[in-house]
Write a protein that binds this DNA or RNA. Sequence first.
RNA 1: GCGCCCGUAGCUCAGUGGAUAGAGCGUUGGCCUGCGGAGCCAAAGGUCGUGGGUUCAAGUCCCGCCGGGCGCGCCA
Length: 559
Amino acid sequence: MFREALRREIRDAITRAMESGAIPSGEVPAFEVEVPRDRRHGDYATNAALLLAKQAGGVPREIAQRLVEFYAPPPDRIARLEVAGPGFINIAVAWPWKRDLVATICRLGDGYGLQAIGAGRRVNVEFVSANPTGPLHVGAGRNAVIGDVLANLLEALGFSISREYYMNDAGQKVHNLARSVEAHYLTMLGQPTPPPEGGYPGEYVKDLAGRLVADDGDRWLRVSEDERLDHLRDISVTAVVADIREVLERFGVRFDTWFSERALIRSGAVDRALAEIRARDYIYEADGKTWFRSTCFGDDKDRVIVKPTGEWTYFGSDIAYHLDKLARGFDLMINVWAIDHIGDVARVKGGLAALGISPEALEILIYQHVRLKNAGEYLRMSKSSGEFVALRELMDAVGVDAARYFFAMISPAVPMDFDVALALQHSQDNPVYYVQYAHARIAGILREAAAAGIGAPPAGGMEAPLPLDRLTDEREAALIHALGELPEVIRLAGLRREPHRLCAYAREVAEAFHLFYTHCRVLTDDPDLTGARLALVEATRIVLRRTLGLLGVSAPDSM
RNA sequence: GCGCCCGUAGCUCAGUGGAUAGAGCGUUGGCCUGCGGAGCCAAAGGUCGUGGGUUCAAGUCCCGCCGGGCGCGCCA
């Protein structure tokens, strides 16, 4: 809020100073308006003079001094401007401007922080997309939160977002699932059958077979193996997808589109994509296989795109899939992938490049694996080992709010240790409670005010002028400063694809509030002071609820 | 071997080329006579893996090395 205005005004000051010859003219550098680490330096600081000095020569502190003279903002907005250190300009926001922000937030309500940067550009965010061969494990939880929160952020920035799940429901993996169910099915009907090579050992596989026996009895013994496997695959995938969908919904994630790879292949889209790449001469036949010249796009060797059996490799359908997304009108595709797919990034982009599509149309956000720790021991997690911990179990154990907050809290680029024992034993210590507690406290104050007949400020219109000039305390100032950062946090977290910034911010706001709360009583016998502080409390509630909302974490009125 | 990522407090992690590197947990010691103590205050704890380089300024950018993760499938 403050930052946008400061950036604009400093840019104007630079332009005016250049025009008058007070500083060397040239391009306006990409300067920063940042919060100084040491808050005694003021609310904000800019390095504009340092960059100008570097660019056009001159003494940084002198240039800073000139800028200060040309800036000359009205005193009801900036209380102090001073040149400091090597040439920073420190900026202290004046009280009237801070008080304005409180009124603005109360007026905007949940609209506070919304921006128009995206200008309606259509963005497809594809995430989770786990193979439908079994229940989601905890790694999918991290993927889900990163994707969902990023989608929320981009929506707040004015992008038009579609959330998508790509189901790899064709190919060997789902075939193996069908074989695994078949083995149990046959065994249950008196034909002992060992589990297949590459099969899935989980309990859910047996349940699927059991359900089939209950529903259809031995009907599927009396058909051909192909027919049986087709049916088993269909019912298994359907059941697994339903389970995945249910878990994700409980986890607060809803997709606009569940995209089927089988349907894509059946539509002929993959054949068409291949034909187009072939027309551009990036395809050749050798050893009975069809190859893609990925070496033309920086790969270290060419890749098979059609196997000797005539089946597509995953690569063919991947290309067709991304073409399909573009055909649906998206300006940008963002995929959230686990680190083990890092090698595929260049290949898929290469495939798209072969069709003349800019690599910038597809952005792949890589996140590191989640390691589950239990009392210091790392748990092996893979579906084939059968030893994975399901997202459902984790969610049941620590709660949706804690799980989401925890997954969101850590930068995607950093491998994450999730200590199950700790989460189970000390879930009360999870940082999410600190933030939620601040919200609950606020709700308590507003309840109390209402019960005492004190009119809390309405979230919508604030027609009556508030006695905000009664806000004078340094903790009030610090809290307002924190509230002012929401738009910038949303901007950075969204544009840099760094959802974890929201958690750091939520904590900051909660901390500033708790500090305010301990030192500044809200409900007093001074009506004006009470009114002013109630407005600040309401503004804080809006910001906390908004931030938690972007994280998909609840903002409870009581705990 | 090649490619990408990570290395910051005892542990888990923040950190936008900028001023004295920050949180949480854990440890130690304080604070409940009015709105929720799931809170507040204070202390201890760091050669930012390592060696160079660029810069007025490097945890941040570049190069080498060490340690770790993940890839380098006619698996998806």
